[in-house]
Nucleic acid binder design. Sequence first.
RNA 1: GGAGAGGUGACCGAGUUGGCUUAAGGUGCACGCCUGCUAAGCGUGUGUGGGGGCAACUUCACCGAGGGUUCGAAUCCCUCCCUCUCCGCCA
Length: 420
Amino acid sequence: MLDVRFIRDNAALVKEAVHNKNEKADIDRILELDAQKRKLQFDYDTKRAEQNRVSKQVPILKKQGLDASGLIAEMQKIAAEVKAIGQTLGEITAQLDAALLVVPNVPHPSVPIGRDESDNELVHEWGEKRKFDFVPKDHLALADGKLLDFKRPAKLTGSGFAGYTGVGALLERALINFMLDFHVQKHGYNEISLPYIVSRTTMTGTGQLPKLEDDMYHISEDDLFLIPTAEVPVTNYYANEILKNDQIPQKFVAYSPCFRREAGSYGKDTKGLQRLHQFNKVEMVRFSEPDVSYDVLEEMVRDAEDLLQALELHYRVVTLATGDLSFASAKTYDLEVWAPGTGRYLEVSSVSNFEAFQARRANIRYRDANDKVSYVHTLNGSGLATPRTFIALIETWQNADGSISIPEALRPYLYGMEQI
RNA sequence: GGAGAGGUGACCGAGUUGGCUUAAGGUGCACGCCUGCUAAGCGUGUGUGGGGGCAACUUCACCGAGGGUUCGAAUCCCUCCCUCUCCGCCA
Protein backbone atom coordinates (compact mmCIF):
# COMPACT_ATOMS: atom_id res chain seq x y z
CA MET A 1 0.00 0.00 0.00
CA LEU A 2 1.20 3.47 -0.79
CA ASP A 3 1.02 6.37 1.63
CA VAL A 4 -2.00 8.42 0.68
CA ARG A 5 0.11 11.54 1.20
CA PHE A 6 2.59 10.24 -1.35
CA ILE A 7 -0.25 9.75 -3.82
CA ARG A 8 -1.51 13.24 -3.04
CA ASP A 9 1.89 14.76 -3.78
CA ASN A 10 2.83 12.52 -6.71
CA ALA A 11 -0.44 11.77 -8.44
CA ALA A 12 1.03 11.88 -11.94
CA LEU A 13 3.86 9.52 -11.04
CA VAL A 14 1.47 7.02 -9.45
CA LYS A 15 -0.87 7.10 -12.43
CA GLU A 16 2.06 6.41 -14.71
CA ALA A 17 3.13 3.51 -12.49
CA VAL A 18 -0.37 2.01 -12.60
CA HIS A 19 -0.33 2.25 -16.37
CA ASN A 20 3.18 0.83 -16.77
CA LYS A 21 2.29 -2.14 -14.58
CA ASN A 22 -0.84 -2.89 -16.61
CA GLU A 23 -2.87 -2.39 -13.46
CA LYS A 24 -6.12 -0.62 -12.81
CA ALA A 25 -6.60 1.80 -9.96
CA ASP A 26 -8.64 4.96 -9.86
CA ILE A 27 -6.20 7.54 -8.53
CA ASP A 28 -8.51 10.51 -9.07
CA ARG A 29 -11.15 8.86 -6.94
CA ILE A 30 -8.61 8.31 -4.19
CA LEU A 31 -7.63 11.98 -4.27
CA GLU A 32 -11.26 12.94 -4.00
CA LEU A 33 -11.98 10.54 -1.15
CA ASP A 34 -8.88 11.75 0.62
CA ALA A 35 -10.00 15.37 0.41
CA GLN A 36 -13.45 14.44 1.66
CA LYS A 37 -12.02 12.44 4.48
CA ARG A 38 -9.78 15.24 5.69
CA LYS A 39 -12.63 17.72 5.69
CA LEU A 40 -14.86 15.32 7.61
CA GLN A 41 -12.06 14.59 10.03
CA PHE A 42 -11.71 18.30 10.74
CA ASP A 43 -15.44 18.74 11.28
CA TYR A 44 -15.56 15.67 13.48
CA ASP A 45 -12.62 16.76 15.61
CA THR A 46 -14.06 20.25 16.09
CA LYS A 47 -17.45 18.97 17.16
CA ARG A 48 -15.99 16.28 19.33
CA ALA A 49 -13.73 18.81 21.08
CA GLU A 50 -16.78 20.88 21.90
CA GLN A 51 -18.60 17.83 23.16
CA ASN A 52 -15.69 16.80 25.36
CA ARG A 53 -15.39 20.29 26.77
CA VAL A 54 -19.05 20.76 27.63
CA SER A 55 -19.53 17.24 28.98
CA LYS A 56 -16.95 17.97 31.63
CA GLN A 57 -19.12 20.74 32.99
CA VAL A 58 -22.00 18.41 33.79
CA PRO A 59 -20.46 16.90 36.93
CA ILE A 60 -19.25 20.36 38.03
CA LEU A 61 -22.78 21.73 37.91
CA LYS A 62 -24.14 18.68 39.64
CA LYS A 63 -21.59 18.98 42.40
CA GLN A 64 -22.75 22.53 43.02
CA GLY A 65 -26.27 21.24 43.29
CA LEU A 66 -27.33 23.02 40.11
CA ASP A 67 -29.62 21.69 37.41
CA ALA A 68 -27.72 20.31 34.42
CA SER A 69 -30.68 19.17 32.39
CA GLY A 70 -30.50 22.17 30.02
CA LEU A 71 -26.85 21.46 29.28
CA ILE A 72 -27.59 17.79 28.80
CA ALA A 73 -30.40 18.52 26.39
CA GLU A 74 -28.06 20.75 24.40
CA MET A 75 -25.41 18.08 24.36
CA GLN A 76 -27.83 15.49 23.08
CA LYS A 77 -28.06 17.52 19.91
CA ILE A 78 -24.29 17.78 19.54
CA ALA A 79 -23.87 14.08 20.28
CA ALA A 80 -26.26 13.30 17.43
CA GLU A 81 -24.27 15.54 15.09
CA VAL A 82 -20.99 13.92 16.11
CA LYS A 83 -22.49 10.52 15.49
CA ALA A 84 -23.75 11.50 12.03
CA ILE A 85 -20.42 12.97 10.97
CA GLY A 86 -18.60 10.01 12.43
CA GLN A 87 -20.71 7.62 10.41
CA THR A 88 -19.99 9.41 7.15
CA LEU A 89 -16.33 9.64 8.07
CA GLY A 90 -16.28 5.89 8.66
CA GLU A 91 -17.85 5.18 5.30
CA ILE A 92 -15.47 7.44 3.41
CA THR A 93 -12.49 5.98 5.27
CA ALA A 94 -13.55 2.44 4.39
CA GLN A 95 -13.93 3.38 0.75
CA LEU A 96 -10.55 5.09 0.73
CA ASP A 97 -8.83 2.14 2.39
CA ALA A 98 -10.36 -0.30 -0.05
CA ALA A 99 -9.28 1.87 -2.97
CA LEU A 100 -5.74 2.17 -1.62
CA LEU A 101 -5.41 -1.60 -1.31
CA VAL A 102 -5.60 -2.05 -5.07
CA VAL A 103 -3.01 0.57 -5.98
CA PRO A 104 0.17 -1.22 -7.04
CA ASN A 105 3.62 -0.30 -5.84
CA VAL A 106 5.58 2.24 -7.89
CA PRO A 107 8.49 0.74 -9.83
CA HIS A 108 12.00 1.91 -9.00
CA PRO A 109 13.40 4.37 -11.60
CA SER A 110 15.96 1.77 -12.71
CA VAL A 111 13.25 -0.67 -13.81
CA PRO A 112 12.89 -0.90 -17.60
CA ILE A 113 9.50 0.22 -18.85
CA GLY A 114 7.80 -2.42 -20.92
CA ARG A 115 4.59 -4.30 -21.56
CA ASP A 116 5.54 -7.85 -20.63
CA GLU A 117 8.35 -10.33 -20.10
CA SER A 118 9.71 -9.75 -23.59
CA ASP A 119 10.88 -6.37 -22.33
CA ASN A 120 12.85 -7.80 -19.43
CA GLU A 121 16.52 -6.83 -19.45
CA LEU A 122 19.39 -9.29 -19.27
CA VAL A 123 21.73 -8.37 -16.41
CA HIS A 124 24.31 -11.09 -16.81
CA GLU A 125 24.83 -14.79 -17.41
CA TRP A 126 26.92 -17.33 -15.58
CA GLY A 127 28.44 -20.43 -17.12
CA GLU A 128 27.30 -21.68 -20.46
CA LYS A 129 24.96 -24.20 -21.99
CA ARG A 130 26.42 -27.64 -21.62
CA LYS A 131 27.43 -29.28 -24.90
CA PHE A 132 26.31 -32.88 -25.23
CA ASP A 133 27.70 -35.59 -27.47
CA PHE A 134 24.31 -37.25 -27.30
CA VAL A 135 20.77 -35.91 -27.47
CA PRO A 136 19.87 -34.77 -23.96
CA LYS A 137 16.55 -35.96 -22.63
CA ASP A 138 14.07 -33.77 -20.85
CA HIS A 139 13.30 -34.47 -17.21
CA LEU A 140 10.20 -36.51 -17.97
CA ALA A 141 12.06 -38.88 -20.25
CA LEU A 142 14.83 -39.08 -17.70
CA ALA A 143 12.87 -39.50 -14.52
CA ASP A 144 9.18 -40.23 -14.95
CA GLY A 145 8.45 -43.58 -13.42
CA LYS A 146 11.82 -43.62 -11.71
CA LEU A 147 12.65 -40.52 -9.72
CA LEU A 148 9.26 -38.99 -10.36
CA ASP A 149 5.67 -40.15 -10.53
CA PHE A 150 3.00 -38.00 -12.12
CA LYS A 151 0.35 -40.58 -12.76
CA ARG A 152 -0.53 -41.58 -9.23
CA PRO A 153 -0.48 -38.12 -7.66
CA ALA A 154 -2.92 -37.10 -10.40
CA LYS A 155 -5.05 -40.02 -9.25
CA LEU A 156 -4.87 -38.81 -5.68
CA THR A 157 -5.59 -35.17 -6.31
CA GLY A 158 -5.69 -34.17 -9.95
CA SER A 159 -3.38 -32.75 -12.55
CA GLY A 160 -0.65 -30.41 -11.47
CA PHE A 161 0.53 -32.51 -8.58
CA ALA A 162 3.75 -34.45 -8.64
CA GLY A 163 5.36 -37.23 -6.65
CA TYR A 164 9.02 -37.77 -5.97
CA THR A 165 9.91 -41.39 -5.43
CA GLY A 166 12.88 -43.29 -4.07
CA VAL A 167 16.15 -41.58 -4.91
CA GLY A 168 14.10 -38.81 -6.52
CA ALA A 169 12.56 -38.04 -3.15
CA LEU A 170 15.98 -38.15 -1.58
CA LEU A 171 17.34 -35.80 -4.22
CA GLU A 172 14.57 -33.30 -3.63
CA ARG A 173 15.11 -33.43 0.11
CA ALA A 174 18.85 -33.07 -0.49
CA LEU A 175 18.25 -29.90 -2.49
CA ILE A 176 16.15 -28.41 0.29
CA ASN A 177 18.67 -29.23 2.99
CA PHE A 178 21.58 -28.08 0.87
CA MET A 179 19.93 -24.74 0.21
CA LEU A 180 18.94 -24.17 3.83
CA ASP A 181 22.39 -25.07 5.12
CA PHE A 182 24.05 -22.90 2.52
CA HIS A 183 22.05 -19.81 3.47
CA VAL A 184 22.42 -20.40 7.18
CA GLN A 185 26.10 -21.30 7.23
CA LYS A 186 27.54 -19.24 4.38
CA HIS A 187 25.15 -16.31 4.12
CA GLY A 188 24.22 -15.87 7.77
CA TYR A 189 20.45 -16.26 7.54
CA ASN A 190 18.28 -17.29 10.49
CA GLU A 191 16.23 -20.34 9.73
CA ILE A 192 12.57 -20.12 10.59
CA SER A 193 9.60 -22.40 10.17
CA LEU A 194 6.09 -20.96 10.37
CA PRO A 195 2.50 -22.04 9.64
CA TYR A 196 1.55 -22.97 6.07
CA ILE A 197 -2.00 -21.84 6.68
CA VAL A 198 -2.64 -18.16 7.34
CA SER A 199 -5.48 -15.72 7.87
CA ARG A 200 -7.02 -13.27 5.42
CA THR A 201 -5.30 -10.39 7.22
CA THR A 202 -1.92 -12.03 6.80
CA MET A 203 -2.53 -12.60 3.10
CA THR A 204 -3.47 -8.96 2.73
CA GLY A 205 -0.32 -7.82 4.50
CA THR A 206 2.01 -9.05 1.80
CA GLY A 207 -0.30 -8.02 -1.04
CA GLN A 208 -1.72 -11.37 -2.22
CA LEU A 209 -5.15 -10.13 -1.24
CA PRO A 210 -7.45 -8.69 -2.30
CA LYS A 211 -6.13 -8.86 -5.86
CA LEU A 212 -5.06 -12.50 -6.23
CA GLU A 213 -7.71 -14.32 -4.22
CA ASP A 214 -8.58 -16.56 -7.17
CA ASP A 215 -5.02 -17.89 -7.18
CA MET A 216 -5.10 -18.94 -3.55
CA TYR A 217 -6.36 -22.12 -1.98
CA HIS A 218 -8.98 -21.08 0.50
CA ILE A 219 -10.34 -23.01 3.44
CA SER A 220 -13.81 -21.54 3.57
CA GLU A 221 -14.86 -23.13 6.84
CA ASP A 222 -12.25 -21.12 8.73
CA ASP A 223 -11.60 -18.38 6.17
CA LEU A 224 -7.94 -19.37 6.04
CA PHE A 225 -5.55 -19.70 3.12
CA LEU A 226 -2.79 -22.12 2.15
CA ILE A 227 0.34 -20.08 1.62
CA PRO A 228 1.55 -19.57 -1.96
CA THR A 229 5.06 -18.87 -0.64
CA ALA A 230 6.84 -18.66 2.71
CA GLU A 231 7.10 -14.92 2.05
CA VAL A 232 3.60 -14.58 3.45
CA PRO A 233 4.05 -15.93 6.99
CA VAL A 234 7.67 -14.82 7.31
CA THR A 235 7.11 -11.22 6.21
CA ASN A 236 4.02 -10.95 8.38
CA TYR A 237 5.97 -12.40 11.31
CA TYR A 238 6.61 -8.85 12.53
CA ALA A 239 3.21 -7.41 11.59
CA ASN A 240 2.01 -4.63 13.88
CA GLU A 241 5.36 -4.36 15.58
CA ILE A 242 7.95 -1.67 15.98
CA LEU A 243 11.21 -3.52 15.51
CA LYS A 244 13.98 -3.20 18.05
CA ASN A 245 17.61 -2.72 17.14
CA ASP A 246 18.41 -6.41 17.22
CA GLN A 247 15.48 -7.22 14.92
CA ILE A 248 16.58 -5.02 12.04
CA PRO A 249 18.30 -5.65 9.78
CA GLN A 250 16.96 -9.20 9.84
CA LYS A 251 17.54 -12.06 7.44
CA PHE A 252 15.32 -15.11 7.55
CA VAL A 253 15.38 -18.24 5.47
CA ALA A 254 12.46 -20.65 5.48
CA TYR A 255 11.55 -23.86 3.78
CA SER A 256 7.89 -24.33 2.94
CA PRO A 257 5.57 -26.02 0.55
CA CYS A 258 3.77 -23.55 -1.70
CA PHE A 259 0.19 -23.87 -2.89
CA ARG A 260 -1.06 -22.12 -5.98
CA ARG A 261 -4.26 -22.60 -7.89
CA GLU A 262 -2.64 -21.11 -10.98
CA ALA A 263 -6.02 -19.92 -12.15
CA GLY A 264 -5.83 -18.70 -15.70
CA SER A 265 -2.56 -20.40 -16.54
CA TYR A 266 -3.97 -23.66 -17.83
CA GLY A 267 -1.98 -25.05 -20.70
CA LYS A 268 1.04 -22.92 -19.88
CA ASP A 269 4.28 -24.70 -18.95
CA THR A 270 2.28 -27.70 -17.90
CA LYS A 271 4.92 -30.24 -18.72
CA GLY A 272 6.18 -32.29 -15.81
CA LEU A 273 7.50 -30.33 -12.88
CA GLN A 274 7.39 -26.95 -14.55
CA ARG A 275 4.17 -25.63 -13.06
CA LEU A 276 2.56 -27.33 -10.10
CA HIS A 277 -0.23 -26.57 -7.66
CA GLN A 278 2.04 -27.66 -4.85
CA PHE A 279 5.79 -27.41 -4.70
CA ASN A 280 8.60 -26.88 -2.23
CA LYS A 281 10.68 -23.78 -1.96
CA VAL A 282 13.35 -22.24 0.22
CA GLU A 283 12.70 -18.54 0.65
CA MET A 284 14.87 -15.68 1.86
CA VAL A 285 13.11 -12.78 3.58
CA ARG A 286 14.85 -9.61 4.69
CA PHE A 287 13.79 -6.68 6.84
CA SER A 288 15.94 -3.72 5.94
CA GLU A 289 16.41 -0.07 6.75
CA PRO A 290 15.14 1.95 3.80
CA ASP A 291 18.39 3.62 2.83
CA VAL A 292 20.19 0.34 2.17
CA SER A 293 17.41 -1.86 0.81
CA TYR A 294 18.68 -1.76 -2.76
CA ASP A 295 22.10 -2.96 -1.60
CA VAL A 296 20.28 -5.77 0.17
CA LEU A 297 18.44 -6.60 -3.03
CA GLU A 298 21.73 -7.02 -4.92
CA GLU A 299 23.12 -9.12 -2.07
CA MET A 300 20.11 -11.43 -2.17
CA VAL A 301 20.53 -11.98 -5.89
CA ARG A 302 24.11 -13.03 -5.21
CA ASP A 303 22.94 -15.30 -2.38
CA ALA A 304 20.60 -17.08 -4.78
CA GLU A 305 23.23 -17.18 -7.52
CA ASP A 306 25.71 -18.83 -5.16
CA LEU A 307 23.44 -21.85 -4.99
CA LEU A 308 23.23 -22.27 -8.74
CA GLN A 309 26.97 -21.85 -9.01
CA ALA A 310 27.56 -24.46 -6.33
CA LEU A 311 25.28 -26.78 -8.29
CA GLU A 312 27.23 -25.84 -11.42
CA LEU A 313 24.17 -24.89 -13.42
CA HIS A 314 24.15 -22.33 -16.20
CA TYR A 315 21.77 -19.43 -15.59
CA ARG A 316 21.02 -15.84 -16.40
CA VAL A 317 19.73 -12.93 -14.37
CA VAL A 318 17.12 -10.57 -15.77
CA THR A 319 15.50 -7.39 -14.49
CA LEU A 320 11.75 -7.53 -14.86
CA ALA A 321 10.17 -4.80 -16.94
CA THR A 322 7.34 -2.78 -15.41
CA GLY A 323 4.67 -4.83 -17.18
CA ASP A 324 6.03 -8.08 -15.76
CA LEU A 325 6.59 -6.74 -12.27
CA SER A 326 4.30 -8.03 -9.56
CA PHE A 327 1.68 -5.87 -7.90
CA ALA A 328 3.65 -5.27 -4.70
CA SER A 329 7.17 -5.12 -6.05
CA ALA A 330 9.25 -2.02 -6.80
CA LYS A 331 12.02 -3.98 -8.48
CA THR A 332 12.50 -7.66 -9.21
CA TYR A 333 15.32 -9.78 -10.58
CA ASP A 334 14.55 -13.23 -11.92
CA LEU A 335 17.09 -16.01 -11.99
CA GLU A 336 16.52 -18.33 -14.92
CA VAL A 337 18.36 -21.61 -15.07
CA TRP A 338 19.10 -23.45 -18.27
CA ALA A 339 17.33 -26.79 -18.74
CA PRO A 340 19.06 -28.43 -21.71
CA GLY A 341 16.56 -31.24 -22.22
CA THR A 342 13.57 -28.94 -22.09
CA GLY A 343 15.53 -26.42 -24.13
CA ARG A 344 14.43 -23.43 -22.11
CA TYR A 345 15.48 -21.15 -19.31
CA LEU A 346 13.30 -21.77 -16.25
CA GLU A 347 12.60 -19.23 -13.55
CA VAL A 348 13.88 -20.65 -10.26
CA SER A 349 14.08 -17.46 -8.25
CA SER A 350 12.43 -14.11 -8.10
CA VAL A 351 14.11 -11.56 -5.88
CA SER A 352 12.16 -8.43 -5.04
CA ASN A 353 12.34 -5.22 -3.09
CA PHE A 354 8.91 -4.15 -1.91
CA GLU A 355 10.26 -1.05 -0.20
CA ALA A 356 7.63 0.06 2.35
CA PHE A 357 4.68 -1.31 0.38
CA GLN A 358 4.20 -4.47 2.41
CA ALA A 359 5.42 -2.86 5.62
CA ARG A 360 2.68 -0.26 5.37
CA ARG A 361 0.03 -2.93 4.82
CA ALA A 362 1.31 -5.18 7.57
CA ASN A 363 2.29 -2.24 9.78
CA ILE A 364 5.93 -3.18 10.34
CA ARG A 365 8.01 -0.31 11.64
CA TYR A 366 11.31 0.44 13.34
CA ARG A 367 13.07 3.30 15.08
CA ASP A 368 15.72 5.01 13.00
CA ALA A 369 18.93 6.59 14.33
CA ASN A 370 16.97 9.64 15.46
CA ASP A 371 14.41 7.47 17.26
CA LYS A 372 11.83 8.38 14.67
CA VAL A 373 9.37 5.60 13.87
CA SER A 374 9.10 4.69 10.21
CA TYR A 375 8.30 1.76 7.97
CA VAL A 376 10.90 -0.88 7.23
CA HIS A 377 11.65 -2.15 3.76
CA THR A 378 10.84 -5.79 3.10
CA LEU A 379 12.49 -7.96 0.49
CA ASN A 380 12.27 -11.57 -0.44
CA GLY A 381 13.67 -14.00 -2.92
CA SER A 382 13.51 -17.67 -3.66
CA GLY A 383 16.61 -19.54 -2.85
CA LEU A 384 15.41 -21.62 -4.65
CA ALA A 385 12.21 -23.20 -5.93
CA THR A 386 12.76 -26.95 -5.88
CA PRO A 387 10.96 -28.42 -8.93
CA ARG A 388 12.60 -26.33 -11.60
CA THR A 389 15.96 -26.61 -9.92
CA PHE A 390 15.38 -30.37 -9.97
CA ILE A 391 14.64 -30.21 -13.70
CA ALA A 392 17.74 -28.20 -14.53
CA LEU A 393 19.88 -30.36 -12.31
CA ILE A 394 18.99 -33.71 -13.78
CA GLU A 395 18.84 -32.43 -17.35
CA THR A 396 22.24 -30.75 -17.06
CA TRP A 397 23.97 -33.58 -15.21
CA GLN A 398 22.52 -36.47 -17.20
CA ASN A 399 24.78 -39.02 -18.83
CA ALA A 400 24.33 -40.91 -22.08
CA ASP A 401 23.28 -44.06 -20.22
CA GLY A 402 20.45 -42.25 -18.45
CA SER A 403 22.26 -41.96 -15.14
CA ILE A 404 22.69 -38.59 -13.45
CA SER A 405 25.90 -37.33 -11.96
CA ILE A 406 25.70 -35.48 -8.67
CA PRO A 407 27.57 -32.19 -8.34
CA GLU A 408 30.07 -32.28 -5.52
CA ALA A 409 28.25 -29.78 -3.32
CA LEU A 410 25.22 -32.03 -3.16
CA ARG A 411 26.92 -35.33 -2.45
CA PRO A 412 27.00 -34.99 1.33
CA TYR A 413 23.22 -34.80 1.19
CA LEU A 414 22.97 -37.95 -0.90
CA TYR A 415 24.93 -40.30 1.32
CA GLY A 416 28.05 -39.47 -0.71
CA MET A 417 26.65 -40.83 -3.98
CA GLU A 418 28.41 -39.47 -7.07
CA GLN A 419 25.79 -40.62 -9.46
CA ILE A 420 22.27 -41.91 -9.39
C1' G B 1 -15.43 -29.70 21.44
C1' G B 2 -16.86 -28.59 27.17
C1' A B 3 -15.80 -25.51 31.72
C1' G B 4 -13.22 -21.50 33.96
C1' A B 5 -9.71 -17.20 34.15
C1' G B 6 -7.78 -13.26 31.62
C1' G B 7 -6.27 -9.51 27.53
C1' U B 8 -4.29 -1.88 30.12
C1' G B 9 1.61 2.18 27.57
C1' A B 10 8.87 -0.56 26.17
C1' C B 11 7.84 -3.85 30.62
C1' C B 12 5.31 -4.80 35.46
C1' G B 13 0.86 -3.32 37.41
C1' A B 14 -3.63 -0.23 39.66
C1' G B 15 -8.23 1.26 38.00
C1' U B 16 -14.61 -2.55 36.38
C1' U B 17 -20.87 0.90 42.12
C1' G B 18 -19.32 5.37 34.44
C1' G B 19 -17.39 11.98 35.41
C1' C B 20 -10.75 16.30 38.99
C1' U B 21 -7.48 9.47 35.23
C1' U B 22 -5.04 14.90 30.76
C1' A B 23 -4.56 6.19 32.14
C1' A B 24 -2.21 6.09 39.35
C1' G B 25 2.29 3.83 40.91
C1' G B 26 6.71 1.19 39.80
C1' U B 27 10.67 -0.61 36.48
C1' G B 28 13.38 0.51 32.27
C1' C B 29 15.17 4.36 29.10
C1' A B 30 16.94 9.66 27.93
C1' C B 31 18.76 14.29 29.65
C1' G B 32 20.31 17.30 33.79
C1' C B 33 22.09 17.92 38.96
C1' C B 34 25.07 15.77 42.62
C1' U B 35 29.59 12.87 42.63
C1' G B 36 37.28 11.08 42.99
C1' C B 37 35.02 6.57 39.81
C1' U B 38 30.79 3.40 40.13
C1' A B 39 26.40 2.79 42.73
C1' A B 40 22.76 5.30 45.33
C1' G B 41 20.05 9.91 45.52
C1' C B 42 17.38 14.25 43.43
C1' G B 43 14.92 16.76 39.20
C1' U B 44 12.77 16.68 34.34
C1' G B 45 11.14 14.05 30.34
C1' U B 46 9.56 9.50 28.14
C1' G B 47 3.55 6.03 23.25
C1' U B 48 1.32 5.49 18.27
C1' G B 49 -1.67 7.38 14.44
C1' G B 50 -4.86 11.18 11.98
C1' G B 51 -6.50 16.49 11.30
C1' G B 52 -5.37 21.96 11.49
C1' G B 53 -1.04 25.50 11.65
C1' C B 54 5.16 28.43 8.56
C1' A B 55 6.00 27.43 13.57
C1' A B 56 5.58 27.36 18.90
C1' C B 57 1.37 24.69 19.28
C1' U B 58 -3.45 22.67 19.12
C1' U B 59 -7.15 18.99 18.52
C1' C B 60 -9.19 14.00 17.76
C1' A B 61 -8.67 8.72 18.17
C1' C B 62 -6.43 4.45 20.55
C1' C B 63 -6.82 0.43 27.60
C1' G B 64 -7.46 -7.25 22.36
C1' A B 65 -11.02 -6.05 17.64
C1' G B 66 -15.75 -4.27 16.07
C1' G B 67 -20.59 -2.48 17.31
C1' G B 68 -24.17 -0.41 21.08
C1' U B 69 -26.13 2.48 25.54
C1' U B 70 -24.98 7.58 27.60
C1' C B 71 -24.36 14.63 27.87
C1' G B 72 -19.93 11.57 29.20
C1' A B 73 -17.19 4.56 28.62
C1' A B 74 -10.73 1.40 30.21
C1' U B 75 -15.19 1.01 33.37
C1' C B 76 -22.10 -1.00 31.41
C1' C B 77 -24.34 -4.27 27.10
C1' C B 78 -23.68 -7.36 22.44
C1' U B 79 -20.58 -10.01 18.78
C1' C B 80 -15.87 -11.75 17.52
C1' C B 81 -10.43 -12.80 18.17
C1' C B 82 -6.41 -14.32 21.13
C1' U B 83 -3.75 -16.28 25.60
C1' C B 84 -3.66 -19.40 29.98
C1' U B 85 -5.67 -23.56 33.24
C1' C B 86 -8.61 -28.04 33.68
C1' C B 87 -11.51 -31.90 31.04
C1' G B 88 -12.37 -34.55 26.40
C1' C B 89 -10.07 -36.08 21.73
C1' C B 90 -5.48 -36.90 19.38
C1' A B 91 -0.03 -37.10 16.07
